[in-house]
Nucleic acid binder design. Structure first.
Lengths: 248, 248
DNA sequence: GCTAAAGAGCGTAGCTCATACGCAGTTAAT
DNA sequence: ATTAACTGCGTATGAGCTACGCTCTTTAGC
């Protein structure tokens, strides 16, 4: 607990480093309880359902009681965001950088499937929460056996992180809009494109439409989305491989 | 206007295809006016300041008048989202796929600098607005001279889009949190990491911290962020190059 | 033991927001 | 002239965040 003075209150909260004096009423609520309740609500009813009142109800407490432990809703979201990541995957000892990074990326998406609201919580700064750092370490670990400088490893992981964040956004938001409005992904989509895309103004897109690339009963297919992700991810990893080859 | 029946009301709104009867009071407000006002507010005061009341005030009208033209705030956000993209870059005729895609990606970020709130508006489906399609066409056009199938071009562009969306998220959200709380990006960050990262539990991250990778006065630097983006982007484009080479 | 400081739970109330509903005024088709 | 269609907007409802302050509990310090 001596460490608490040395880091900001926010970080102390993330790491559970509150220095507890013995005075005062025994707390009936704890920060981990609150986080757990908020995560339950978000999992069951979506991030939109997470209100201070709803989380308090989940705990059987009053709304305002939460504010003794969390300074604002924004603060609670930060805590949820770190908790949502759960634990990074175990890396097999001899997996190699490429399979390691691929495993890492797909593990992020697996974690996301349990807590899709993770992708909607705004980033609040560089990674500092315990789970965030554990995942960061895990990705860096995959590059441990490469001859890259430490800063280069960070660069490679940041690029992967960027890619994965983009994938999270597309996955989560398209999945949600598919649930709300599946017609937008069906035949009506390619029909609309054929009507709206003027091949003189948008020749390249016109050719794609004409070639029937969008002529499916639904463009949104869990498997399809994952395959597309794998395609893009492999292109990135090919790039990393080329960089490594150039570097040695 | 005959096309209006063939596409959904939402799409008609995006493309300005409302069929106007001549009856009734002359509208004092138009959808483009409303979008323009909303964009002004978002540019000046952030997306958080965009409320129906605030946009109406910008136009000198009452709040509820807006609802004659847009069906909900969500609807207005969709319209803003398409408008924010403005026009895609002019592609020099002989630019080549690689420089073309790089130009495209950096143009997205230039557009984003004018309207950073773009990255916060949830995706509402596959691209269908006029500006969205124009940008889509532009990226596909960069691949026109490659021997790829149309579907493969879409895959490459989707991968790039994923990467760029990730970059948008990181750029915008980190920039915002830097404004709110610059200390989180300064020396305090590496100090916190040195305290919190146990090298036994997180060996790879421990080495990175130890190597001083985070020892800068500020980790958030416009130039630095852009350089990192360029690094990741180049890795992806190297991957595309390898794919093309394999393919021919 | 007594006292008071520190801490915890929570009721009230104020503020901002989205938006349903309905009225009143306006214009053009008939 | 009549009326259907359409616009602007005032009112009101309900949800949400959270400042403030009261009350009760626990224990440190004497």
């Amino acid at each position: 607990m001596t460490e608490e003075d040395r880091v900001s209150a926010e970080i102390a909260l993330l790491w559970g480093l509150r220095d507890t004096t013995r005075r005062g009423r025994k707390p009936a609520l704890s920060v981990p309880d609150i986080i757990r309740a908020a995560v339950e609500v978000a999992d069951a009813e979506g991030l939109g359902a997470v209100s201070m009142a709803r989380v308090a109800k989940q705990l059987g407490n009053s709304t305002m009681a939460l504010y003794r432990h969390v300074s604002s809703k924004e603060d609670l979201l930060k805590l949820m965001s770190d908790a949502a990541l759960e634990d990074p995957p175990e890396m097999p000892a001899d997996i190699g950088w490429r399979d390691g990074l691929a495993l890492w990326a797909s593990s992020v998406l697996v974690a996301l499937r349990k807590h899709p609201w993770y992708a909607r919580i705004p980033l609040a700064g560089p990674p500092i929460g315990p789970q965030n750092l554990a995942w960061f370490d895990c990705a860096l670990g995959a590059l441990a056996d490469t001859p890259l400088e430490e800063a280069e490893k960070v660069g490679v992981v940041m690029g992967l992180l960027t890619f994965v964040h983009g994938e999270m956004r597309l996955t989560v938001e398209l999945a949600e809009s598919f649930r709300n409005n599946p017609e937008a992904f069906g035949r009506a989509y390619s029909r609309a494109l054929r009507l709206l895309v003027d091949p003189r103004k948008m020749p390249a897109l016109g050719r794609v439409v004409e070639a029937g690339v969008f002529d499916f009963d639904t463009l949104y297919d869990e498997r399809e989305v994952e395959a597309d992700f794998g395609f893009g991810l492999n292109l990135y990893l090919d790039g990393v491989a080329a960089y490594l080859a150039r570097r040695t």
